[in-house]
């Protein structure tokens, strides 16, 4: 409950908190009916999500739903339904986002692109989340030699120029969805490992971790039950940002010709196919770019909201 006084109130709040550390009053200094109030507050915080967060969630929900339902939606096929006669046509009532250089419906291609791009981004980050998270948790919990070695591996991975690394992986192994996903996963592993490690390091200093060990809890039990739940918010928040970065990275790989092959519709490929027409038919690039913009913005924003929500709760702890 750090929020009562903003900015320059911080110092005083800290002072109030200092004295409260010796206190028999809950951390917000004030209530006897704290339990009731607190339970209400957390709910209020949920209910009180800013409007922007709801818009972002709504955008992502529509996008994900559209991506999942793409095969059954009444939209033209993104690859085969080409109408070369109308190539590079601007937006019309029939084709609200216009047609691309091969006369394919851009709206449909964006939805099919979402299906592949979001799959690649989510799969890459989930892989990074699991592997990087495990690495970070272990290296943050075992501070000694294990932590040092895992930390060094993380640092080495982080030091690689990441786009180049992804480029190399895709160039050598082939431009398939799986390989692009793995390339982006490799990039996201050290980032998540790093964040998880930093958070796990500070949480494992807490007395409750020592208390669990003193109860006889084994290492795995301590990591999973005591540390992981506390580290998870930071990991989730970074993972959301990671998905946003992965979406942009996928598009960037396509633009430099190292993305998924053009016969698979991704957002990167949609933009790539439009870039030659950017002067005559900017809509071909504009619409997919705007979709990427809104998606990345929504994910970044949600990451911030998530962190702020948990920060507030953490400071109350």
């Amino acid at each position: 409950m750090r929020d009562p006084l903003p900015d320059h109130g911080e110092e005083l709040i800290h002072l109030m908190h200092d004295s409260e550390a010796r206190s028999d009053v809950p951390a917000d200094s004030v209530t006897q009916q704290f339990a009731a109030v607190s339970a209400g507050t957390v709910k209020a915080k949920r209910k009180g999500l800013p409007l922007g967060a709801w818009i972002a969630i709504g955008w992502m929900a529509i996008l994900i739903l559209a991506a999942i339902l793409a095969p059954v939606l009444p939209i033209p096929d993104p690859i085969n339904d080409a109408n070369p006669l109308k190539a590079a046509q601007g937006p019309t009532l029939d084709h609200i986002f216009g047609l691309d250089g091969n006369g394919r419906d851009v709206f449909s291609r964006i939805i099919w692109g979402a299906r592949n791009s979001l799959f690649i981004a989510f799969a890459a980050v989930i892989t990074g989340f699991l592997i990087g998270g495990a690495l970070g948790l272990i290296s943050g919990y075992f501070k000694g030699r294990i932590g040092g070695v895992l930390g060094a591996i993380t640092d080495i991975l982080l030091a690689f120029p990441q786009l180049v690394l992804a480029l190399a992986v895709v160039s050598f192994l082939g431009r398939t969805v799986f390989n692009v996903t793995m390339a982006l996963a490799i990039v996201s592993i050290p980032i998540l490992a790093r964040i998880t490690r930093a958070s796990a390091l500070s949480w494992s200093e807490r007395d409750f971790v020592t208390a669990a060990r003193a109860q006889g809890a084994g290492h795995i039990r301590t990591m999973l039950r005591e540390i992981l739940p506390n580290v998870l918010p930071a990991m989730l928040s970074i993972a959301l940002l990671g998905i946003a970065v992965a979406i942009v990275a996928e598009a960037s790989l396509s633009l430099v010709g190292a993305g998924v092959k053009p016969d698979v519709t991704t957002w990167g490929n949609v933009i790539f196919s439009g870039q030659a027409y950017i002067r005559d038919a900017p809509s071909m690039v504009l619409f997919p770019s705007m979709v990427i913009f809104f998606t990345v913005y929504a994910l970044n924003y949600l990451g911030d909201v998530l962190r702020a929500t948990f920060d507030v709760r953490e400071s109350a702890l």
């Binding site: 009562p4 006084l5 903003p6 900015d7 320059h8 109130g9 110092e11 005083l12 002072l15 109030m16 004295s19 409260e20 550390a21 010796r22 206190s23 028999d24 009053v25 200094s29 004030v30």
Partner: peptide, 23 residues
């Protein structure tokens, strides 16, 4: 006083060392 008695805020309030907003 104990915590929550206002003793720390009292000295700051006399000195005028308080946040500007929400006070």
């Amino acid at each position: 006083g104990e915590s929550g008695s206002g003793k720390t805020v009292l000295s700051r309030s006399i000195m005028g060392l308080l946040p500007k907003r929400d006070v």
